[in-house]
Amino acid sequence: MCAMLQIRREICGYCGACVSVCPEGALELIDAYLTVDDHCIGCGICARICPLGALEVTDETGI
């Protein structure tokens, strides 16, 4: 099983709050968009604290 972080760009307000709580340093705010790299472990902390609800961890079971 592999957790994936989905960024809903139409909701994201690119504030960077999520970047500050990411324990893996997997998120980065580049001007007006957010990126996630493969260090993401799917812990979901960012999804929880997002002021707008723009992030979601989904389980990709691959089956």
Binding site: G16, S20, P51
Partner: peptide, 26 residues
């Protein structure tokens, strides 16, 4: 580089804010 700071992290410093100590604001 602000709350979304990355630079210190690239230099090997852990800057992670604990979830309960991050005020999420609107």
């Amino acid at each position: 580089d602000g709350v979304e700071s990355k630079f210190a992290r690239w230099c090997g410093i852990d800057t992670t804010v604990p979830m309960r100590e991050l005020e999420t604001c609107a």
